[in-house]
Nucleic acid binder design. Structure first.
Lengths: 160, 160
DNA sequence: GATTGATAGTACGAAAGTGGACTATTTTTA
DNA sequence: TAAAAATAGTCCACTTTCGTACTATCAATC
């Protein structure tokens, strides 16, 4: 079936969100399992914190598939994993389905809003208006639109 | 740990996204497992299509916990499930954590965009952000939010 | 130099989710 | 009225993920 939380390339194995994140994050530099766990928890403010029992077996699995490669460090029982060429290719083929994955995210958002209850009526109307206006903007005005929206975002952040 | 895709009330059992959706969807009217599967696939344009092996055991589980109640229909081997008072209470306590769950959604979005390579300064991304920020606003700020959005709308109109 | 806290990982049972094969009934269509 | 399609499930083996407990090392500090 179609899971909300798994990601397929056009052809090939489905990957979990964590697997995707690992391949992406290792592009920056080699990291240990522990590094990754810390990084994720930090980046998401603790909202997402996979368990060790999830990440270590996954790292082994990815290494077996040669998408990443672990190298022991001199001291410590610590392994730094780096993404391989193979891994980069896999990531790229999944990225090609970006549109699809983007839609996944949007659907997820819509469902959450529906379940959790969204914003006020008048606010919704305004958001709708703004979206409609933006959609109908003639080409060539994009820069100005972005400027206005960025200003709006800034103003919203300032409210407390 | 903290999963991206599971949802906890302040105290009590964690629930899957599908469990949440079921409790929410059954508020409308009693539905069969098959109804729910169709509804989900249709609403998300096939992006999300849980398998039968997921939903039927889950329905049984929820019934055992008395969050929903199944009633056989005369003809057919078909069961229509309705949400119970208990189920409504559970849903309400999870809704109370709404802001937490919004943050989950936003973090997920940010990660997807980072992995898939969506630009932060695109019109779409900005609209998404604005929507997300507005939804996260604490109660009592509606007036200010409306003011900001009205200003934004005015600014957009001014672009030619 | 002993203690503590952060780092880094192993091991494992339990729970959840998945796809597919299978059955049976009802409705539609040819 | 026979065949096909849609409806409505059951069952099961498999994989993924989870949480927890356990071990061990290194760095700081007291």
């Amino acid at each position: 079936m179609a899971s909300l939380f798994r990601f397929s390339p056009h052809e090939g194995k489905e990957r979990s969100f964590l697997a995707l994140y690992i391949l992406h994050a290792l592009q920056e530099r080699p990291k240990s399992g522990y590094d990754l766990l810390k990084e994720i928890a930090e980046k998401t403010g603790g909202i997402w914190a996979p368990s060790k029992g999830t990440i270590y077996p996954l790292l082994k699995q990815l290494e077996k598939e040669e998408l990443i490669k672990g190298a022991a460090t001199e001291k410590r029982a610590k392994t730094l994993f780096a993404v391989t060429q193979n891994g980069l290719t896999t990531l790229a083929t999944i990225r090609e389905m970006g549109r699809e994955h983007h839609r996944k995210m949007i659907q997820y958002k819509n469902l959450i809003l529906a379940i959790m209850g969204g914003s006020e009526h008048s606010v919704k109307g305004l958001l709708f208006d703004i979206r409609a206006i933006v959609d109908e903007m003639p080409p060539g005005t994009e820069k100005q639109v972005i400027a206005v929206l960025e200003q709006c975002r800034k103003d919203l952040h300032r409210i407390t």
